[in-house]
Amino acid sequence: MTERNTDLEARTEAKPLPRVSPATDILEREDGFYVYMDIPGVRREDLKIDINENEMVVTGRAGQAASEKETFLEVQFGPGEYIRAVSLSDLVDREHIKASLKDGVLTIHLPRLEKASPRRIPVQSA
């Protein structure tokens, strides 16, 4: 029991936080694409979303919720740094990307560019 506890402490203090790739859903709806990421334990202040040319990188830091005095009997998750990159296609309107964080789930809405919406080309008779 104590062995595991010291193990956890060593992991949190000595080494940088372990990098975790968060579980991610990517789906498409009428109004664009939606990205959902499970990042439990990350507060809004500790979350960063960077967009480079055609890659969106989400980084978040989940801290240790327990106090110092507690001894652990069972550890199945711990503090970590979530990091995940999603490639963006040219169809995404970069100016209007919206992100929200609720109950540990990050939702990113990637709207489609106006001009990329499907349209029909009329055929004129010569």
Binding site: A66, E70, T71, E74, F77, D103, G104
Partner: peptide, 23 residues
């Protein structure tokens, strides 16, 4: 097993923590 659990104790209480995003 889902969801992952952490179980800990201090002098006063036992703590059960679990990651349950989106609920």
């Amino acid at each position: 097993a889902y969801p992952p659990l952490n179980v800990s104790e201090d002098d006063a209480s036992y703590y059960v923590r679990s990651e349950l995003p989106g609920l």
